[in-house]
């Protein structure tokens, strides 16, 4: 059942598929970005269509921009610089990948970025090593060059709480992807840092009336709030009366239900429905399938694990893959 579709060279550090699974971006330790395209929609064989050095130093993560805004990727380097590259054909020239924007590191390294579409404009959430979260807004839907800083805040519920200089190892962001647009846009972010207030994953929602981002839920039990968060993943919702969110910490993999209707404080009700153990050590990545029914995870134990809920709502590990040569 497992079919090999591509071999990449030894310096490859990360890969990322676009939403339709037809293009693969890979990057390497020397800052090279490669793009591979499938020949036709029914085949999974890939051919290289672009390869070039796009950043100084090691690229650690690639994120695709939503297809509504073209074929573009954000490359995050180990130094915390984000470089946005786009495939365009300008002024009757042939198709080329071009850099359209770089988000520098004047105020800390970028640890993670994720794109989301809210009120018809593209937003980019960036998490920084100093614990800051910045939301950038694209000004022109056809031009990935022009970004504006829309908001800047820290991942804390009480903005008055004071703490020392934060140092974050990693951060994980996940948008609530919506196609209706009836709800306000929201995303989820958690940190792995030395500052406990920042760590726990929180849901941020844009308040149209006051034009600002507000924390509407915290996905951690009171005793777990300082736990460093390895990864978060917001499940696609195809019609459930609640949202499902996965949060991984050193205590395990927690599955949360998030209510859709806020209480009088504007907070959304949360309930932890499962705490699962499986990966020994750190969880690297979590991804929901397109129905939001199966969660796939990878972690330090080198395994890929699949999780599902049964008919009674009990979450369990459904299967695991063990790489063997």
């Amino acid at each position: 059942m497992a079919k090999e579709i591509l071999t990449l060279d030894n310096a490859t550090t990360c890969t990322s598929w676009n939403i339709s699974g037809t293009r693969l971006a890979s990057a390497s330790a020397d800052g090279t970005l490669s793009i591979f395209d499938s020949r036709d929609p029914s085949s999974s064989s890939l051919r290289s269509t672009f390869k070039s050095r796009v950043l100084e130093g090691n690229i650690v993560k690639i994120v695709w921009v939503p297809p509504e805004y073209g074929d573009a990727v954000a490359c995050i380097s180990a130094d915390g610089i984000v470089s946005l590259w786009e495939e365009v054909a300008e002024d009757s020239q042939s198709l080329q990948w071009k850099m359209c924007k770089s988000f520098g590191n004047s105020s800390g390294k970028v640890l993670d970025v994720q794109f989301g579409i809210s009120s018809t404009s593209l937003k980019m959430v960036a998490a920084y090593s100093d614990g800051n979260v910045r939301v950038f807004e694209l000004l022109d839907p056809l031009e990935l060059r022009n970004w504006q800083l829309q908001a800047e805040f820290q991942n804390v519920i009480e903005s008055v709480s004071a703490f020392g200089k934060a140092s974050c190892l990693s951060a994980s962001i996940s948008w609530n992807v919506q196609k209706g647009g009836s709800q306000e846009s929201s995303f989820l972010i958690g940190f792995n840092s030395n500052t406990s207030e920042l760590n726990s994953s929180k849901v941020w929602e844009f308040d149209q009336a006051h034009q600002r981002w507000l924390p509407v839920a915290e996905l951690a039990l009171p005793e777990d709030r300082g736990d460093q968060v390895y990864a978060v993943a917001w499940a696609p919702n195809i019609g459930r009366p609640y949202e499902i969110i996965a949060v991984a910490t050193h205590k395990g993999l927690a599955i949360w239900h998030l209510g859709l209707n806020p209480d009088h404080d504007g907070r959304l009700p949360v309930e932890r429905v499962a705490l699962l153990s499986g990966h020994q050590g750190m969880v690297w990545q979590m991804e929901w399938d397109m129905s939001g029914m199966t969660l796939a995870t990878t972690g330090q134990d080198g395994m890929v694990r699949l999780w599902q809920s049964n008919l009674n709502g009990v979450w369990h590990q459904q299967a695991a893959f063990e790489p063997t040569s």
Binding site: E4, T15, W284, A296, G302, F321, E322, P323, S325
Partner: peptide, 19 residues
């Protein structure tokens, strides 16, 4: 637990997934 044959020289230092 299903084996995932990959033919690479061990160890596998990183894995990534995408649905």
């Amino acid at each position: 637990v299903y084996p995932l044959h990959h033919g690479l020289a061990p160890p596998i230092c990183r894995l990534s997934i995408s649905w």
